[in-house]
């Protein structure tokens, strides 16, 4: 069980949070203009990397805020956390 540094509350147990899948997948502004393939790309296709992955998490049993996490999926080490709308760290 890892520890997540919620950008609003600080370090808390993983059990207080819920994972929300890959981060930085923006909902298309004009879905109606998209082909089936383009819409399916947004709807279904997600990366499952062994290594550094950008993820969304929510502090369900805390402040209920969504934020982003950079996690190494091979060892669960969290490299960074940052708020929604902030740019992902480049390093």
């Amino acid at each position: 069980m890892f520890i997540i540094n919620c950008p609003y509350c600080g370090e808390r147990e993983q059990s207080e949070f819920k994972a929300g899948g890959e981060a930085h997948i923006v909902r298309p502004k004009q879905p109606t203009e998209l082909s089936d393939d383009q819409w399916a790309e947004y709807l279904f296709m997600r990366k499952n990397i062994k290594g550094i992955q950008f993820e969304r998490w929510v502090h369900t049993h805390g402040c209920r805020k969504w934020f982003n996490v950079v996690r190494d999926t091979s060892n669960d080490v969290i490299k960074a956390v940052y708020k929604m709308g902030e740019k992902p760290p480049t390093k």
Partner: peptide
Amino acid sequence: LGKLEDYLQTEWP
């Protein structure tokens, strides 16, 4: 509630 919060916070802030 969780789903609505998700859209509010991440897609339509």
